[in-house]
Amino acid sequence: MILNQIIFSKKAQGKGFEEDKTSEKPLRSVLKALSWRLIGTLDTLIVSYVLTGEIGLATSIASIDFITKLVLYFFHERIWNKIKWGK
Rank of each mutant, 00 (worst) to 15 (best):
A62C: 02
T59P: 05
L27G: 02
L42M: 03
L45E: 05
I61G: 02
K21W: 01
S35D: 03
T41S: 14
V50K: 11
W80G: 13
E54W: 09
R37A: 09
S60E: 12
Y73K: 11
I79P: 02
K25W: 00
A62D: 03
T59F: 10
K87Y: 15
K87L: 15
I64Y: 06
L45T: 10
D43S: 15
M1T: 08
W85Y: 15
P26D: 06
K82R: 12
L27W: 13
A62S: 10
S35A: 07
V47A: 11
E24I: 02
F17P: 00
V71P: 04
I67V: 12
L27M: 15
L31Y: 09
Q5S: 03
G14H: 00
I39N: 05
W80F: 14
E18L: 00
K21F: 01
Y49T: 08
K69L: 08
S63W: 08
A33M: 06
A62Q: 04
L27E: 08
F74I: 09
E18W: 00
A58V: 09
T44L: 07
F8R: 02
L57Q: 10
Q13Y: 00
I67D: 04
Q13R: 03
N4P: 03
K87C: 12
L51D: 12
L38H: 04
D43V: 11
T44D: 04
F8T: 01
I55W: 14
T44Q: 05
Q13P: 00
L51W: 14
S23N: 02
I79G: 03
L57N: 08
W85G: 11
W80I: 08
